[in-house]
């Protein structure tokens, strides 16, 4: 039984289909990565799943509750960390969490314990009585993650959780996120630009122009590239090419004096290569494809923050639509 189930979901703003008929499922206890360039429909999808906006058509279920018909039940099952901070900066960290606990109807006798645990989990307990406006960006994000867990949600949505953080805060937050499924029995649904973060997801869906164009585990997706790339330098390229053909039935390409071959199991291939070619081998390099390579191959563009112009266009259109209606 998947914890999140989406069927043919469509969200239109006038003529613009921000989400254009997507379907996917997320297994309980996993980290699901939603990848795509800016304006691809990631945040719109999250907003529909979190019952913040309605859908044009299609179905979406979280924890067996209908996102379009039972907003209250869905909201109790989820926690959300938005892209922009939604903390009250004039309250302390502690007060922010207590506020959240009351808002979500946590039993009064349990509030204190849960808030303490959550603050400890993200290592902010010592700073609990500081006003949030004194917090750094990384601390705020960690506090929001802690807040999202207070009401024990089944699914935690993280919209670009590490965006705009310095490398150290990113690593720190990332440690917290990857610990969560086991420690808090929660499924993570996250969007991200950062490819190294996507690598850690159990499953990834790549979205572009409102459509899912690929889905699978990071390893499965990398097979789209056709496997690992091995490059080697030899004393005798011609002879080596013939040997490789004999050994693996693969044509090795000769590019600028180096031989390139692709293999599904590059790591297992290397010992055989060396055995076969013997002392003719000068050096061997194994390159594993990255999610970025996959993304590049599928969409023809790398994920970048700079393509903001595309994003602002779509945001503008959405805003104009809301003004008209």
């Amino acid at each position: 039984m998947p914890i999140i189930k989406v069927e043919n979901l469509v969200k239109r703003y006038g003529n613009l289909a921000a989400v254009d008929g997507i379907s996917f499922e997320v297994k309980e206890g996993t980290i699901f990565g939603f990848l795509g360039p800016n304006g691809a429909g990631k945040t719109t999808t999250i907003n529909v799943l979190c019952t913040l906006i309605s859908a044009t058509s299609g179905k979406a279920f979280i924890n067996d509750h209908d996102c379009l018909k039972e907003p209250s039940a869905v909201r109790k099952s989820i926690g959300i960390v938005f892209q922009d901070s939604t903390l009250d900066k004039d309250l302390t960290a502690y007060e922010n969490l207590v506020f959240h606990a009351y808002l979500y109807g946590v039993k009064k006798s349990e509030i204190k314990g849960r808030v303490h645990d959550a603050l400890n989990f993200v290592e902010l307990y010592d700073r609990r009585d500081d006003l949030v406006k004194k917090y750094s960006g990384g601390m705020k994000r960690r506090l929001e993650v802690a807040r999202g867990l207070i009401h024990r949600p089944r699914v935690l949505f993280l919209d670009e959780p590490t965006l705009g953080l310095d490398p150290q805060s990113r690593a720190n937050l990332w440690g917290v996120i990857t610990e969560m499924p086991k420690k808090h029995n929660v499924t993570i649904f996250m969007t991200t630009h950062y490819m190294e973060e996507a690598e850690v997801c159990d499953k990834i869906a790549i979205i572009d122009n409102g459509k899912i164009i690929a889905e699978g585990s990071p390893d499965e997706l990398k097979k789209i590239i056709g496997g690992d790339v091995i490059s080697l330098k030899t004393r005798d390229n011609k002879w080596s090419q013939q040997e490789i053909k004999k050994l693996f039935d693969i044509d090795a390409e000769n590019k600028e004096g180096e031989l390139y071959l692709t293999s599904n199991r590059g790591d297992a291939c290397i010992p055989e290569l060396i055995r076969g070619l013997g002392d003719k081998v000068l050096s061997v390099k194994l390159q594993r494809p990255t999610i970025n390579d996959v993304f590049l191959k599928l969409t023809g563009k790398a994920i970048r923050e700079e393509d903001a112009s595309g994003m602002s266009n779509i945001k503008e259109e959405v805003r104009a639509y809301r003004r008209r209606h």
Partner: peptide
């Protein structure tokens, strides 16, 4: 203000009528 600084989203996303 709460809308501008995002906090209102925390309230609107909660299971509260």
């Amino acid at each position: 203000w709460d809308k501008e600084f995002g906090f209102f989203k925390e309230i609107l996303a909660a299971p509260v009528s």
